[in-house]
């Protein structure tokens, strides 16, 4: 249940930025969660919205974008996309294929898809 910890970090960063910008309100927040990050996006939206209550971001729309998982091959150097279904909210329960799509080697490392970013916020002044 680390969604609460991550939600709190998002809320602190968004409110900090909004106040630095002199915002009257935050109307939307766009986040990016890589498809191999172990975050449940419905849960985190719920917690962010809860923590926003009573702040200048209360009621802000929370938009979440994905980023496909990618692996880099230690043998041939190729970068290939990890095949998971991005529409499946429970995608981390399925088994992604981490092998290199070019040479088939299992010796790869995840080079994209575990990121968690605050992409942008929309504010009114």
């Amino acid at each position: 249940m680390h969604e609460v910890t991550v939600a709190q970090s998002v809320v602190d960063a968004v409110l900090g930025e909004a106040s630095a910008q002199g915002a009257r309100a935050v109307t939307s927040v766009t986040l990016i969660f890589g498809e191999l990050s172990l975050i449940n996006t419905e849960q985190i939206s719920f917690w962010i919205a809860s923590f926003f209550e009573g702040s200048l971001a209360e009621g802000a729309e929370i938009l979440i974008e994905g980023a496909p998982g990618k692996v880099e091959c230690r043998d041939c150097g190729a970068i290939s996309e990890v095949s998971v279904d991005p529409d499946d909210k429970l995608s981390h329960y399925l088994v992604p294929d981490f092998s290199c799509a070019h040479c088939g080697s299992p010796h790869t490392f995840i080079c994209q898809g575990r990121e968690m970013l605050i992409k942008s916020i929309q504010i009114t002044k």
Binding site: L117, I118, K119
Partner: peptide, 11 residues
């Protein structure tokens, strides 16, 4: 209304 790009790593 304005959009503020953050690109901030949550972790």
């Amino acid at each position: 209304v304005s959009d503020v790009k953050m690109g901030q790593d949550i972790l």
